[in-house]
């Protein structure tokens, strides 16, 4: 529980959320407060406990290998902020 402003900025960068220095200053104590409270979980002995996988017993179903969807380019692109020639477009990526 030692989240400093640098950590806040690093986490925000991982999460792709632009934050200002002032935001980071404000968020650091806030996150510390929450994380400090969360850390009481550490006192629970879980050495012989399995992590929960399915909250209600249920089996993963597998679907048949059948094409059921497609040829709906207009629908897929309908809400796109920017697109042309049937593509979504983004600022040019240099690889």
């Amino acid at each position: 529980m030692s989240v400093d402003t640098a950590t806040v900025k690093k986490v925000a960068s991982l999460a792709r959320i632009a934050i200002s220095d002032a935001d980071a200053e404000r968020l650091a104590p806030e996150l510390n407060n929450i994380l400090g409270w969360i850390e009481q979980l550490g006192e629970v002995d879980t050495s012989s406990v399995e992590p929960m996988t399915a909250v209600i017993p249920n089996k993963l179903r597998l679907r048949e290998d059948v094409v059921t969807e497609g040829n709906q380019r207009d629908a897929v692109l309908q809400n796109a902020p920017q697109g042309e020639h049937g593509f979504f477009t983004v600022p040019k990526v240099v690889e």
Partner: peptide, 26 residues
Amino acid sequence: ILIGTYVLSAGFYDAYFTQASKVRTL
């Protein structure tokens, strides 16, 4: 999102997420 990103990030996953998933079992 920031809390979630933090608890999943490298080095913290087991202490936070795995532990929480175990306590959830309890």
